[in-house]
């Protein structure tokens, strides 16, 4: 029957990961039947996969496919969140130092009333500079630590991904491949 011949699945892929995803899906028995770039999002490519409806160990392959998708998406999340801490800390310290600079400027100009205000203004300016420097240092520290950590986590994910793809390969090689 025609409707039972082929299964298809349409997937939106991050373009940087597309080749690796296609490779993994290939181990699951999927072949690329069509591909197009999304109009308004250059980062995303829509790929259509197809494979015969009747294949051996189909349910096992479907479970592996779910796990492979989860690994890819986890890697994407880790990469997306890699700069979060450093960005947040930089923004927080930057806001604080801006406040100090603004206060210092006000004390120098609008609220100027003798030596005390000048000293306060200078102190505020100094705090502003210290905040900016501290923010820079913390951001850099978080960036370094998070980069190393995210690389380690992604390496673990890639390892698991490799094992899942190998399992899929073994499954398909283990039995008769093709229509039942």
């Amino acid at each position: 029957m025609d409707t039972m011949d082929k299964d298809t699945v349409c997937v939106n892929l991050n373009s940087l990961a597309a080749e690796q995803v296609k490779q993994c899906y290939g181990e699951l028995g999927w072949q690329v039947c069509g591909e197009r770039k999304k109009k308004f999002n250059k980062n995303v490519v829509q790929v259509k996969f197809c494979r015969p409806h009747f294949i051996n160990f189909k349910d096992e392959l479907l479970l592996l496919q779910v796990r492979i998708d989860i690994e890819f998406n986890q890697m994407g999340k880790i990469a997306a969140n890699r700069l979060r801490r450093s960005a947040l800390s930089g923004a927080a310290f930057g806001a604080v130092s801006l406040l100090f600079f603004a206060w210092s400027a006000l004390l120098f100009t609008v609220f100027s009333s003798g030596a005390a205000s000048v000293i306060l203004a200078a102190a505020a300016c100094l705090f502003g500079v210290c905040s900016a420097v501290a923010g820079g240092l913390f951001s850099y520290k978080f960036f370094k630590v998070d980069t190393v950590e995210s690389e380690r986590l992604i390496a673990c994910n890639l390892n698991r991904l490799r094992r899942l793809c190998e399992s899929a390969k073994l499954l398909r090689a283990g039995g008769r491949y093709g229509c039942e």
Binding site: L16, A17, N43, V44, D69, G76, K77, I78, E151
Partner: peptide, 17 residues
């Protein structure tokens, strides 16, 4: 270094709904 960036849908692989 990771080659994976966040897509607008927030995921690397997304089955078309």
């Amino acid at each position: 270094m990771s080659r994976f960036l966040r897509s607008s849908e927030g995921s690397v692989v997304k089955i078309k709904a």
